[in-house]
Amino acid sequence: MITELLSTTVLIGILASGIRLATPYLYAAIGETFGQKSGVLNLGVEGQMLLGCFAAFYVALTTGNLWLGLLAAMIVGAAMGLAMAFVTVNLRAQQGISGIGFYLFGLGMSDLLFQRLMGTVETVKGFQRIYIPGLSDIPGIGEIFFNQNILVYGAYLLVPLAWFVLNKTTLGLKIRAVGENPDAADSLGVSVARVRYFTIILGGTLSGIAGASLSIALLNVFQQNMTSGLGFIAVALVYFGAWKPVGVLGGALLFSMVNSLQLWIQVLGIPVPSDIAVMMPYVLTILVLVATVSRVRAPSALTKPFERDD
């Protein structure tokens, strides 16, 4: 049985789908990183993803255009982000609680729309794998890394891009300052509200793409609650990755590889109870968070509403 897992074909298969499955984690967790860096904890990622998931699928299904579907997911995600920003920045709501509210809204709304507009589970032909001459033909490596669809590539490009924006631009400097000491940023004329609006809406947009990557690039269906906790794991990944894009990448890969492994265990019929296999990534989340807790300090102003006073 174990020997089956160790065959080259299966190993390549595990790694390739591991690379692919990291996609939604990456979009969602990088988006969440921006929010948390600026001091906002968005627990509504899961809800944003679900609505993005549905919007992408429904628009792609009805128009036949995957790009329109993706755009719809981004718009829906951004709109959710805008609402979240208003609630946390202007109304200074408790971020943990309002995030749960947004999650429940996304969960219920996506299901309602699904029931009303579709009713039955359908499938679309999602984004196809892109063949890169030369690279895709490398034995093993080509199959694992260079035989993926556009959204997978996009997710990996996002990691260095996010690092660059956070560390090399004036915008990134403002984001980091606002998350650590908003009073200092404010005293230098940086608008704390504008920075936070930007990061929350960006986070929402990326969560929307994360949802779309499930429904029109990886699984190509829409079902009720199909993200099944993935958005919450993305939030945990930000802690795991110590608020660094490359750390988030490491965490996303760890979880997607474990996920891939458990899928292959089921596919190959290895007699591990499927419930246990499905549990693996989640158990890992808890273990890893316990192990890494307090290793790195969170942004000081995380979850704290900003109010100018003295």
Binding site: L173, A177, N181, A184, A185, V190
Partner: peptide, 25 residues
């Protein structure tokens, strides 16, 4: 003090000012 402890001295000074390199610091 209105300083961000996790940033460097230069980053604290540059915060909020326009950069000579546009969007880049």
């Amino acid at each position: 003090f209105m300083l961000v402890p996790t940033l460097t001295v230069a980053e604290n000074v540059a915060l909020g000012l326009p950069s000579s390199r546009g969007v880049l610091t």
